[in-house]
Design a protein around this nucleic acid. Sequence first.
DNA 1: ATGAAAGCGCTAACAA
DNA 2: TTGTTAGCGCTTTCAT
Lengths: 347, 347
Amino acid sequence: MTNTTIRKRVTIADIAREAGVSKTAVSFAFNAPGRIGDETRRKILLVAEKLNYIPDPTARKFSRGVQMTLGFLLPQALDVCFANPYIIEVMRGLGAVVQEHGYMLTVIPPLNDSIGEAVKNATVDGLVTMGYLVADGVSGIVDVRAMPLVMIDGGNDGQHISVNIDDEAAAHLQLSQVLKRGHRRIAVLSLPAPSLTPKANDKGIVGRRMAGYKRALEEAGLGLDALRLFQGEATWQAGWDAAPAISLSGVTCLVTMSDIQAFGFLDWCQAHGIRIPDSISVVGFDDVKGNGAYGRLSTIRQPAREKGVMAARLLFDILHGQEPAGPPLVRHSFVEGGTLKDISDSI
Amino acid sequence: MTNTTIRKRVTIADIAREAGVSKTAVSFAFNAPGRIGDETRRKILLVAEKLNYIPDPTARKFSRGVQMTLGFLLPQALDVCFANPYIIEVMRGLGAVVQEHGYMLTVIPPLNDSIGEAVKNATVDGLVTMGYLVADGVSGIVDVRAMPLVMIDGGNDGQHISVNIDDEAAAHLQLSQVLKRGHRRIAVLSLPAPSLTPKANDKGIVGRRMAGYKRALEEAGLGLDALRLFQGEATWQAGWDAAPAISLSGVTCLVTMSDIQAFGFLDWCQAHGIRIPDSISVVGFDDVKGNGAYGRLSTIRQPAREKGVMAARLLFDILHGQEPAGPPLVRHSFVEGGTLKDISDSI
DNA sequence: ATGAAAGCGCTAACAA
DNA sequence: TTGTTAGCGCTTTCAT
């Protein structure tokens, strides 16, 4: 309680005294114009103006137990997340809805590397999380704090809502396009996950996508061992870093779980004179805008902004005590870019 | 005060009772491990764990008067701001520093179209604002709330710190490059401002930049009337919308105050078969990544991320009662892209 | 229409 | 080392 300000803060009591009314009256003057006489109200507002009184929002929020703020829980450092166009698009969607409701948005990075710590300290009415990393460590604390939660790209634990595409089907589509074009030696640059074992009912998107890959492979008479597996965060750097090993692995195509990884890979290839897609094909995931230097990236499109909009809407539904509307599924599609070459006839 | 939860919230009092100690002890156990016996502390923490107790962050913040949160005040809707790569870069810088300090970041859009309203309700320890629109309406309320404030791209009112490039010099450089290449009929797509009258000591960046343009023109023996003035927000749409009028105005070059406006213009030109820079040259401002379809944009570079970093640092300096370090100036430079054609020898 | 007063849950000065 | 207690500023129930 360090208030270094010279003159003390003007409080509701000051206004009440000065205006010769009770604190209640002052409170009503601001929050319930109907419950007070017009005369009195005008007088109070006048005094408030004169004394530069502004109701302390901290006290107000504490007292009412409502924050008028939603939290957006990120899996990585702000710096990193804000560098990911996919996340930015999601935030645009969140932002539009949040603002519509007169709410504010607090972005919450892991605090001291602990997501739990961050959630404990978040003064928000509800939480939107992004990325599978989040789900587990968070849900416990969220439950304790009885805080509404909607996940994006999270797991299907049946407990909490998660907005997703059908990741299994999307991954299946992604790899099928690759196989259809004759590729047989394929690298996959995956996102971080505890295990790369494919499980369609896995809690995270990585497991679900691996299951999709597996199914696509099986349909082509292949097994998972046809894949060279690499792993990295959803960053440009991860794509760049993995590039040397991938390019040496003798594959004809790289499949990534994130466009931004693909961009890192493409930039590395460009810097090293490796031609795309002649030397190696690349297929991404997300469909975000790149820098265009290699033409359009072949990728899986998922409507990021819409995910944000839907997540926010669902969260407000819960906040308003309504039944969350509709199944949290958005659609995906394959985007034919210029980075996936058909090599089926050139054995 | 609507608490619809079935079981009542576990409070510090519950823990105190259950552990047979006072609230003080519990508080100390969490916040001042040194001021309490190891034995007692362990016991308290155990009980807390058992009862799923988490100190209410709202109450904590209210009581301590510290929010551990910084606010980022935006001039436009979240949706719009998040679509501006320049703002995103600034946020990356803010985010890095904010997280370093264990703080959170609340992005604050104008609430019900009122920035003042938004600031009144913001529960933050300090504010970073972006864009000249903000300065005026906000400073009064900020003063009343005695809230530290650092502006980015704001005005120099001498009262509050603003992180800027030397906008007058940067604009001078921008237009000089254009004039040097022989352009004489030039359009300027400006940002919104109360007036386009150039004043180097203007409160906003538009005035300062106009002053830079004026100086550049004078050095070329021209007056301000050599410029066709257009005005629009810092959005892709504004560039697109202004394109028809600009392309019909008979100018050989467009100078914008924001890259994203330039992108909108370029996309319109592409859609209408107008070749850049053959039919018309374009010079932007900011140097953010575009979609690359027209090669690199000629522009003025300003270090957006660094602005964010610096603003956040300055704000924390103030928050910590230190003298804000160094002058809030970052440097700019001209970026030679492919959209500015030299027409000096082709009369 | 207005007021008195009891919280909200936590912190911290002061006392023991 | 630990406890008592008085706030923090506002909201809101219940009287009047």
